[in-house]
């Protein structure tokens, strides 16, 4: 098993390195200027390019970038936040996005699971229909529309929660954006859980379990949920990445200094900021690869069929 895990991790790192290289090249052939060109003369730009080594052969640039990266240094912005190291700016943004995203994941999966389980156990009855309607709404209504709606009621009408994000009152001011962010995940998880459970509940092995006398919560936790969770983990993974990397519009509307907003600024600012775009691209990829790795390993825990074949693969 340990060998299997190591192999997966090695593969993940290799994939990430390849992606970094591709991103590096792509960013450099992207249309647009890395500097706020309107405010700079041609000479200034030429100086700047030379200073940043942008005229060197691309492999040389890449080598330099990788050495810095190995020291945790993403360089500095070419057009954004002059002077501040990207690592510092990124840390603040990641911190905000991850905490709100994390809260959204927590709410989305727990509420989603509870809704889905309730619906499946009441298949064909009121709660089931309620859950279906909720999931359709949740998938169709964009999170930011829901956020505006929440702001109207809870901030404007009732003054329970603030209008905007305030890092000093973190939890309090994160509730509304996290809730809106979690809506899609909540609905997706609810719908999936419900469908998977209904399918598992009609399987031969659940009938066998029932025919030996299993019922109620023991039947649900030992036989139904465990089997239903396996496919749910797969849908959940990309959703988690989405939530962690922040939602562009929600961060904009609620004034959150997060990575979603940073990405927009880096591309649609005065210039296309090479280094920020690259840093964010690497961050997204690393997250995605990391989460897929976790999912793979989680599969092994949940599904003995995979666990054993991995073991056999070792031998």
């Amino acid at each position: 098993m340990a060998k299997y895990i190591l192999k997966r991790i090695g593969l993940a790192v290799a994939t990430l390195l390849l992606i970094i290289f591709v991103l590096f090249v792509l960013v450099r052939i992207m249309p647009g200027n890395p500097f706020p060109s309107e405010r700079m003369s041609a000479e200034q730009i030429a100086n700047k390019r030379a200073e940043m080594g942008l005229d060197d052969p691309i492999l040389v640039q890449f080598g330099r970038y990788m050495v810095n990266l190995a020291h945790g240094d993403f360089g500095k912005g070419t057009s954004l936040y002059y002077g501040a190291p990207i690592t510092t700016v990124l840390t603040t943004c990641i911190f905000n996005s991850f905490r709100i995203g994390g809260l959204a994941i927590l709410m989305g999966t727990t509420v989603g699971l509870i809704l889905g389980i309730t619906a499946a156990l009441n298949k064909g009855h009121f709660l089931d229909h309620f859950c279906t309607v909720f999931s359709i709404l949740g998938v169709c209504v964009p999170g930011y529309v829901f956020l505006i709606f929440l702001q109207y009621f809870f901030s404007y009408k009732m003054s329970v929660f603030p209008y905007f994000f305030d890092a000093s009152r973190f939890l309090y001011s994160s509730i509304l954006p996290a809730l809106s962010l979690s809506l899609f995940t909540m609905s997706t998880v609810a719908r999936f859980t419900r469908n998977e459970m209904v399918e598992v509940m009609d399987s031969d092995y659940v009938h066998l379990a029932e025919s030996k006398g299993m019922y109620g919560s023991k039947l649900v936790t030992r036989h139904i949920l465990r089997n239903a969770l396996i496919p749910i983990v797969t849908v959940l993974a990309p959703l988690v990445v989405d939530l962690l990397t922040g939602a562009l519009v929600i961060e904009k509307i609620y004034g959150i200094n997060g990575i979603g907003k940073l990405m927009v600024d880096a591309i649609a600012g005065e210039g296309v900021d090479y280094n920020y775009v690259l840093a964010l691209g690497i961050l997204y990829s690393a997250l995605y690869i990391g989460i897929m790795l976790v999912v793979d390993l989680l599969y092994g825990v949940l599904d003995p069929r995979i666990r054993v074949s991995a073991k056999e693969g070792d031998a």
Partner: peptide
């Protein structure tokens, strides 16, 4: 389930490939 299934009346199904819980 509590008083009859398993303890009084038990059942064997048609398809053994699907009637065991794959995760247990």
């Amino acid at each position: 389930r509590r008083t009859i299934n398993g303890s009084k009346i038990a059942m064997v199904f048609q398809d053994p490939m699907t009637s065991l819980d794959p995760t247990m």
